[in-house]
């Protein structure tokens, strides 16, 4: 089965621990950057994909530099922090930036994928609707829109206004 999905690479990074400075998640909307502070005091940061297909689970520095530039534009004190570690994971980037939770044309095969950047936070709703889809062999109204055939029928989900190349933005 060929899916409307490309595998890409996303990095995140963590600074050395510092005293409490940030008690919520802050994102940089004009670009793509987020930061929060862990209980241990580390600043956890991330943002854009590296931007090319990859299964390598490791990234390159230009993207990290670009992402952190956005962070420093917003919070200049970040420039003084030392980086503790960085890592990269793989991203199932769907073509409209939204996931697919659906049955397939193969009996007994169900799809829950294409989560792009946001598969953690969506876990409860994704699990619940997926369980419903499997148990009843039909989609729930909450995931009806996240169908596999929405690409061929033109019913793309415009949650973020992304086109067919979500990895560009």
């Amino acid at each position: 089965m060929t899916l409307p999905i490309e595998t890409h690479l996303l990095q995140a990074c963590v600074s050395e621990p510092v005293k409490p400075v940030l008690d919520s998640v802050v994102t940089f909307g004009a670009g793509h950057f987020y930061v929060s502070q862990s209980d241990k005091g580390e600043m956890v940061m991330g943002g854009d994909l590296d931007g090319y297909n990859s299964y390598a689970q490791r990234g390159n520095l230009p993207t990290l530099q670009h992402v952190l530039t956005e962070g420093i534009a917003m919070m200049p004190f970040l420039s003084k922090l030392k980086m503790l570690r960085t890592w990269g994971g793989i991203m199932d980037m769907s073509m409209d930036g939204s996931p697919i939770i659906d049955k397939t044309h193969i009996e007994g095969l169900y799809l829950n994928c294409g989560w792009c950047y946001g598969g953690f936070k969506a876990t409860p709703a994704s699990g619940w609707t997926f369980a419903h889809t499997i148990a009843q062999d039909r989609v729930h109204e909450l995931n009806a829109g996240y169908s596999l055939n929405r690409f061929s029928t033109g019913h793309l989900i415009d949650e973020k206004g992304l086109g067919t190349k979500t990895w560009i933005s």
């Binding site: 899916l3 409307p4 490309e6 595998t7 297909n53 073509m95 690409f151 061929s152 067919t164 190349k165």
Partner: peptide, 29 residues
């Protein structure tokens, strides 16, 4: 992106499947 993807030929009938493969579906090797 993937350079092996070819646009369906101009001025010929294009099936929904062909168009779908061209615009959205990727081997993601």
């Amino acid at each position: 992106g993937d350079a092996s993807v070819k646009r369906p030929e101009l001025n010929k009938d294009v099936s929904d499947q062909d168009w779908d493969d061209f615009v959205y579906n990727r081997k993601s090797l």
